[in-house]
Design a protein around this nucleic acid. Structure first.
Lengths: 147, 147
DNA sequence: TTTCGTGCAAACCATTTGCAGCAGC
DNA sequence: GCTGCTGCAAATGGTTTGCACGAAA
């Protein structure tokens, strides 16, 4: 666990939260994850078990909520049945999605200019500290248009 | 039901789909809905019943999928537990969301420039016909930053 | 007459919750 | 010792699915 995260954990401890092995190990696991890898709760549970870390699914969900609400981790929603989680580091590149509503084809893309929009809006509307932003486009892909 | 929709239904009929009272009534209901109103499946079911239209929840879900996949209706995801549906008319204004990951505070906003990004990306990446796009920003609101 | 669509009830499945015991501080 | 956290199992809730019947074409 990085020093920065330790500080933040200490602050949370003062606020009445308890820093348990499960929470520490969960955050440490995210920090070791390769850039750009975003896992579902189920996948996380499997990988943690694989590393010998014992944590129940219920506690994992509660731990994830704890980490998300305190800005350590972000929750991604690809419009699938389940959510994905990844370490929330501000400099991280965002990738966005274009989805065909008919066949489900998904194209990932990046757009350098979107963060300007995000910053502008966050500043104008309530002074948010941005942890994440996502742009999703839905439509018909070339194949499905033809039909 | 508009003439345009009728044509489209006839085309689908030729492709082997069947145009049932339930599907017709569902689409007609969407067309009567006020601009900007987006309902969940549950809400739709209640409102249809209120109008004397009998349709089971299962059929409603199947009908919604049918209308979404054929471009009549769009499915919106506000990151809630359920999805929302509204008539898919191309000129319709989009509204986007900024959500506080800590307290859940949600701010809606519009941004005139986003459609340019959407169009550009859709053209460059696979020639999509856009039916919808959504921009979501996550972060900490002013109150939650302070803590 | 041939499928496809419908209604019902049961199944699904990711996530949440009640509760008793445990552990951080 | 107080109170928050954990693990377990059961509940939740929106959505999907199996099946037999009904109805488009």
């Amino acid at each position: 666990m990085t020093g920065q995260a330790k500080e933040k954990f200490n602050r949370l401890r003062k606020e009445g939260y308890r820093i348990t092995p499960q929470r520490e190990q969960l955050l440490a696991f995210f920090q070791e994850l390769p850039e750009g890898e975003h896992l579902s709760a189920e996948e996380l549970h499997k990988k943690l078990s694989g590393k010998g870390i014992k944590i129940s699914l219920a506690t994992l969900y509660r731990g994830l909520k704890f980490l998300v609400q305190n800005g350590f981790v972000r929750e991604l929603d690809f419009g699938e049945y389940h959510k994905h989680y990844e370490l929330s580091s501000p400099g991280k590149k965002q990738h966005h999605h274009m989805v065909c509503v008919s066949c489900g084809l998904t194209v990932e893309f990046k757009d350098k200019n979107l963060h300007k929009h995000a910053d502008k809006i966050a500043g104008e509307r309530g002074n948010f500290l941005i942890t994440d932003y996502q742009f999703k486009i839905f439509g018909l892909c070339q194949n499905c248009r033809r039909r």
